[in-house]
């Protein structure tokens, strides 16, 4: 179901990003997101991971190269993408349900339908019955779930996630990782997942891209061959340990390069 076909959903071609203050965040970056894959992006702080996601999302424009989509957005009745920020970014004056429904309401979906679809999305992330709560009444993990539900409510083809679980404890994080993999399979998503955690990237992804900095570029690419569904037993296996060592070494090389 998630067999990545060769056709890229979106590709960055020689993408560069230079900010107004002269900072060159990215230069000559080539990266293709294959349809249906789970890709993790790993790299030292400040190497431009967030910038890559923002370019794909259209929240920033490349100053060189281009972002090429395989086909126009919304072709198969799905909206092109969902974005999960590092912070949950919930509007504090709206309930969880109100937050999840927001993308639909902005798109002009009728209120009753938007609410119903928001409830469905909340249930998909394990938050049925919590729709009436405000952000300050939710735990950190619950807020992140709401944020994920909001990203999924438009039924996106592509989900961009920027260190979504960085602030959570290890147990919550592992649970959310498992949930994320389930959603990815159920909803046939393509996921680009930025993280600082080698373990998280290996557990989740088919492919790990390691970036180097100054300027930001792709340094190495590692394929994690282990089959899905991946469960807790995968974490205990030898394949997992070997892959972690491999990614870890690549990351160290990428960080050493800049010295």
């Amino acid at each position: 179901m998630n067999a990545p076909d060769a056709a890229a959903l979106v590709r960055l071609e020689g993408a560069g990003k230079r900010f107004d203050n002269g900072t060159v965040a990215l230069a000559g970056l080539d990266l293709a997101l294959r349809r249906g894959e789970f890709l993790s992006i790993l790299g030292p702080s400040g190497c431009g991971k967030t910038t890559v996601l923002r370019l794909i999302a259209g929240l920033a424009q490349p100053s060189a190269g281009r972002v090429a989509w395989a086909e126009p957005a919304g072709r198969d009745g799905r909206d092109a993408l969902g974005f999960v920020f590092q912070e949950p970014t919930l509007l504090p004056w709206r309930t969880a349900r109100g937050n999840v429904a927001l993308p639909l309401i902005l798109a002009g979906v009728a209120r009753t339908e938007a609410r119903a679809r928001a409830e469905t999305a909340l249930a998909a992330v394990g938050l049925e019955g919590a729709g009436h709560l405000f952000a300050r009444q939710l735990s950190g993990g619950m807020r992140m779930r709401v944020s994920i539900a909001r990203a999924l409510v438009t039924r996106p083809a592509l989900l961009l996630m920027d260190e979504p679980f960085a602030a959570l404890d290890e147990i919550t994080r592992e649970r959310l990782n498992a949930d994320l993999l389930r959603l990815w399979r159920e909803q046939a998503l393509t996921v680009a997942f930025v993280t600082h955690s080698v373990y998280e990237s290996v557990f989740l992804s088919m492919r790990v891209v390691v970036m180097a900095r100054a300027p930001g570029r792709v340094a190495e690419e590692i394929t994690i061959a282990a089959p899905y569904p991946r469960t807790e037993s995968f974490r205990a296996g030898a394949d997992y340990a070997a892959a972690c060592r491999q990614v870890s070494a690549a990351l160290r090389r990428a960080m050493g390069e800049e010295a």
Binding site: R54, A57, G58, L59, L81, F83, F85, E87, T89, L91, W93, L102, P103, I105, L106, A107, T154
Partner: peptide, 24 residues
Amino acid sequence: HNMLDLMALYRARRWQVLWYLRLP
């Protein structure tokens, strides 16, 4: 800023940004 990005992501119109984000 993240909330403004969120609005931009979902192509909110000017009045929507005002009504759903800036005013509250």
